[in-house]
Amino acid sequence: MNILEVFGQLAGALPGAVSQGLIWGIMAIGVYLTYRILDIADLTVDGSFATGGAVGVMCILDGWNLWAAMLMALVAGMIAGAVTGILHIFMGIPAILAGILSQLGLYSINLKIMGKANQSVNVNNTKLLLSLRWVKEFAVHNPLIIVTIIIVALIAALYWFFGTEMGCGIRATGANINMSRAQGINTSLNKILGLMISNGLVAFSGALLAQYQGFADVNMGRGAIVIGLAAVIIGEAVLGKVFINFALKLSSVVIGSIIYYLVVQTVITMGLDANLLKLLSAGVVAIFLALPFWKSQLRASMHMRSKGGKTNA
């Protein structure tokens, strides 16, 4: 394929990639809240993302108001998060395992919600909030615009919430649990609350994606946690030094997600086998997660050398 052709295709695919990045960006904000604020790697998201899609689509097919359907998806996600929290807090199961258990259970629940492995909503005969067919239209219902508006509203709401007494309590719980208890903060409740908010956002994002692509699928959340982590890490690597404010940090997660989808689109356009995509994502995230560790190891060995000690201890 010649270079010009690749560029031509890429330019055509750009709005779609950015839309996907924005939609998954909401999911990534959910991952950010657990991974960075609560200091928990919550694997529930792989299940709750599809739950959001399933609930959203079923409500829409049932003729619900679109925003009511979105709200139901959000609530379903929050319930999933609460289950993980209860498994972790009241049953003493490590957070990662609690998330895996919820995720597995949700697979069955998602099948039950949809009645089969996938359900489609056709934009021709059903009213939808957004669809990939409008991605090149110059109108408010263009996914680029409507998702951006939703994200701005969500970030504003989260910025407000994490500035309240309750929100500060959740941040403190993740920052230092001993200090939080000593200051009278109910850390158990806060962890559950944090997981609920996070999975609510993830499910909301799933309901948006289902409408965008025209169907909900029981496997649509597979690997969501990795995409979320990739977005968080890319956002921090690119903008971490500049974006200090909490609202800006959340925006950098969304920008990280957009960059992720742009890169994915580029490698696919350049001819990468799409089946290898998840392997590529896993590899990239593994390397980025390893960077801080390698940095500290390097620093330690430099320190040893400067002190004249053995480097090969």
């Binding site: 919430f161 309240t164 500060c168 309590g169 200051q183 903060i185 109910n186």
Partner: peptide, 14 residues
């Protein structure tokens, strides 16, 4: 955070 020790944490500004 410390100033609110022993109080319910509400949705008032932190």
């Amino acid at each position: 955070l410390a100033a609110r020790r022993g109080q319910a944490r509400t949705l008032r500004i932190g």
